[in-house]
């Protein structure tokens, strides 16, 4: 549009354009800033300790120059995998239930319930896990604060994410696919799992990966129930410490190399989540190409 130069409108337009452009630029650079700051802070650790020693050192005793992150890495992976194994089937079947089985009113209530679950702060899950789940588990096998407790709490936390995205993926499959399958004489179960599910599976995978990313990054709830002993766990009842919990427990008093190594583990977490994010994006895009041929 043409504005007479120096008119009131011209000024307003320039101002609006300038402020929205700079706001967008500032917002976009927050990510760069965050990565830069964390990288800068972890440089001493990367330079003086090196990535290899962080993985291969026997143990984690920063005060006596031993910086092995391996137990924490394994802890994060185990807690995450176990949480996904518990949450994903429940979430996917819940989504199927909501889309194809539940009576309208019940489905609405269930959706509301899932959304409420998604809104519960992580510290509340942690408190509940600590005061309810941990004593229960310690009755089976002490000490209770364990890999299992962390995974159960985490499973409950990521379940809504996976459920909501799976339900959206299922709803995205055109309903006439389901109707056509039923008209051909397939049962409801066959229509859902053999016809609708294959089209929705990439969306569900994307949702699950986002769940994984959230689980791997979750800190407070896990820290409260996992026991936080630095060790390679020998059973699900053994206490573990995750990377994120390690940061949260020690960053308040850490100095020098110790602090730098904590920032380095933060950097590892950034890389892990960005990797998961890229995977989810790639899968979500492959879904689009898959659907080109659909009616």
């Amino acid at each position: 549009m043409y504005y007479p130069p120096r008119s009131k409108d011209w000024l307003a337009h320039k101002l609006l354009l300038f402020s929205s452009r700079s706001a967008a630029a500032v917002s976009a650079s927050v990510l760069v800033l965050a990565i830069a700051v964390v990288t800068l802070e972890s440089l001493p650790a990367i330079r003086d300790i090196g990535l290899w020693r962080m993985l291969s050192d026997e143990s984690w005793h920063p005060s006596s120059d031993s910086f092995g992150l391996a137990p924490m890495l394994l802890g994060t992976v185990l807690v995450t995998v176990l949480a996904i194994v518990i949450a994903a089937p429940l979430a996917v079947v819940s989504a199927v239930f909501r889309q194809f089985y539940a009576p309208r009113a019940l489905g609405g209530i269930y959706r509301r319930l899932i959304e409420l679950l998604a809104g519960i702060p992580s510290v509340v899950f942690g408190l509940w896990g600590l005061t309810v789940l941990v004593p229960l588990i310690s009755r089976i096998e002490p000490p209770g604060a364990s890999l299992l407790a962390a995974s159960l709490v985490l499973a409950l936390m990521i379940l809504p994410t996976i459920e909501l995205i799976s339900a959206t993926a299922l709803a995205d499959v055109p309903h006439h696919h389901y109707l056509a399958a039923r008209a051909l004489g397939l049962s409801r179960e066959q229509a859902v799992w053999k016809v609708v599910m294959p089209s929705a599976v990439s969306g569900i995978c994307a949702g699950t990966i986002l769940g994984v990313a959230r689980a791997a990054g979750e800190t407070m709830a896990v820290m409260m129930v996992a026991g936080n002993v630095v060790q390679f766990p020998d059973s699900v009842f053994a206490p573990v410490r995750t990377l994120s919990a390690n940061i949260a427990l020690e960053v308040a008093y850490a100095v020098d190399l110790h602090r730098a190594s904590l920032f380095a583990s933060g950097l590892i977490m950034i890389i892990m989540t960005l990797f998961a994010f890229c995977c989810a994006e790639a899968i979500a895009h492959s879904r689009k190409s898959y659907r080109v041929g659909r009616a």
Partner: peptide, 11 residues
């Protein structure tokens, strides 16, 4: 949006 909150904490 995908960056874990603890990373925001140390940042």
């Amino acid at each position: 949006a995908a960056v874990p909150s603890i990373v925001f904490g140390i940042f």
